[in-house]
Design a protein around this nucleic acid. Structure first.
Lengths: 317, 317
DNA sequence: AGTTCTCGCCCGTCCATGATG
DNA sequence: ACATCATGGACGGGCGAGAAC
């Protein structure tokens, strides 16, 4: 119980040297020449005593902890983001850092106070991607040190639309969620979709906002089909929107994919349980996470751009 | 750029007192009487200089940071857990603490190294709930300082089964995921379901393990119906399993809920997009999170037990 | 020159000790 | 002698430039 923690001074005493020497040995400071014999004694003592460096003391000295903070909004999820997080974590671990996630309620004074009380080595703030409409107006760069995650979304959106083109579609709609919490990201993604349409020689995509309410969603789809009868496929913001769409189309008696094709984004597993099973875009974001890690740590990011996205072909396109 | 951070000594100098006095004032130490006029001067100086206490130094002194760490396994999600996290976060914020989440890969040496480098005030480790089968064997108490979250699951499982009983079912099955990552929690939940069955006067529930693979899932359901024709309802481990089940039943041409009713757990939004829309159990875990926060902070947890779960009635039961 | 040590620093906390009226 | 108000400085644990052997 009351056993005080083992400090460097304990190790120093046990091995008959000064704390400074212990520090040099345990940190492999090459500028400082320590007799191999001494090194051995120090290491042995450290091992025997079970010395563990005190992270807080180290952080005080170094000015920041070895934590990297990933700020995410509440309730934002998805396979792609999971992969991103994993890639980030792995690469950080490789360099002795730890990834901690802050699922930020915008309450609580926001990030600053958290950053102040954690003193992380770096912060990757993705919460700007998911702001309410008020914040959407001021659209500067969404985020910077994300390792290209947001830029990657552009490429992935291209993959999504290209699949529709490859399936023979020439006039498509883009389905966006109604939720204001997604407004910022929805706007970003819509921009990417427009760019992709241009590159693919498609007509300007029709925008379909899908309401939460089931009846309203059905109405929205009905309107789309009436106003834009030429549209034969819908590229969805994500799989949740796609599945809402599928449900609405089922309600309307529209067959998928024959009368209207639907493709999701960021393939979730449960998409395969829909009827028809949802075709979607699988995003392997691990490489982006790794890039982000190297960026925030000030290391050279890998030259080769990350691998992109692939289409998970099921039944809805 | 090179502006050194503002320290307590700067504030002391600016207000003509010693650092000690600044500390007493800013921390509202009542044992130490400081002239109100002096207090005002100190506070004014702190405000003007934009003094922010250095969290790491404080942590070094206090022995631990004001971080509470929530350890979760990779990829574990759900509305209930979200609510739990939010309740936890809110209550911690109310007491000047910060919740940080560690989405732990069991690699990276696990929690210990993270704890060592973060020195959190407390750790709530829910990762034990989601271990592989090897770890399942040694089933001690799953977790302790979770504010009753796990115990709550027992109550919620009772709500789930009770809904089936209220709908007139007398012989039910429990659907569990095949994924070994869920084995531990599945075992726990199955235990709760058995207890609930006893309390409700139901027969011992039949266990249905639902394979990932679609064809295999269909086969499993077919077997269930052949071997246990008396079973008229299935209580699912979670909504994902329930939706798999729905898909399999659709494939078999079994009508839901007439021939077989299905109820999910931890109502996800996309359950409403299934056909038929999935009836599920909504878990309001905020109060559990709050309890957990108070527990780990050493405060008195609220006497009244948290509100339970409610059934989201849609179409599948 | 080759090794090792002394000592101040990082910054906030709080006990023991003053200073003042 | 006695509150009341304020301060010096050790401490937590690791680091590393410069001094010392």
């Amino acid at each position: 119980m009351g056993t005080r923690r083992v400090t460097m001074r304990d190790v120093a005493e046990a091995s008959g040297v000064s704390p400074a020497t212990v520090s040099f040995v345990l940190n492999d400071v090459t500028e400082q020449h320590i007799l191999p014999a001494t090194q051995e004694r120090v290491r042995a003592a450290a091992r025997e005593l079970g010395y563990v460096p005190h992270a807080i003391a180290k952080a005080l000295r170094e000015g920041s902890s070895r934590i990297v903070l990933l700020a995410l909004p509440q309730g934002i999820r998805g396979p792609g983001l999971d992969a991103y997080t994993r890639g980030l974590d792995d690469e950080l671990a490789r360099h002795g850092h730890v990834l901690l996630v802050r699922h930020g309620s915008p309450l609580h004074g926001g990030l600053e106070s958290v950053v102040a009380s954690v003193a992380p080595r770096a912060v990757i703030d993705l919460s700007g991607l998911y702001q309410d409409e008020a914040a959407v107006a001021a659209d500067g760069p969404v985020t910077t040190n994300d390792g290209g995650w947001v830029d990657g979304l552009a490429a992935h959106t291209l993959v999504q639309l290209r699949h529709l083109v490859d399936a023979g579609h020439t006039s498509v709609a883009v389905a966006l969620p109604e939720d204001p919490g997604w407004a910022r990201l929805a706007a970003v993604r819509l921009g990417f979709a427009r760019q992709a349409a241009v590159r693919l020689g498609l007509a300007e995509p029709v925008v379909l906002t899908v309401p939460r309410d089931r009846a309203a969603a059905i109405q929205a789809v009905r309107d789309l089909r009436r106003d834009h009868p030429g549209v034969t496929a819908v590229a969805s913001f994500d799989d949740a929107v796609a599945m809402q769409l599928l449900a609405a189309l089922h309600g309307l008696g529209v067959t998928v994919p024959d009368e209207l094709a639907v493709i999701g984004f960021d393939a979730v597993e449960y998409g395969s349980f829909a009827t028809p099973a949802l075709t979607s875009v699988h995003i392997d974001a691990g490489a982006y996470g790794q890039r982000a890690a190297r960026t925030v740590l000030g290391l050279e990011p890998p030259a080769d751009p990350p691998a992109g996205a692939t289409v998970v072909v099921r039944e809805s396109v």
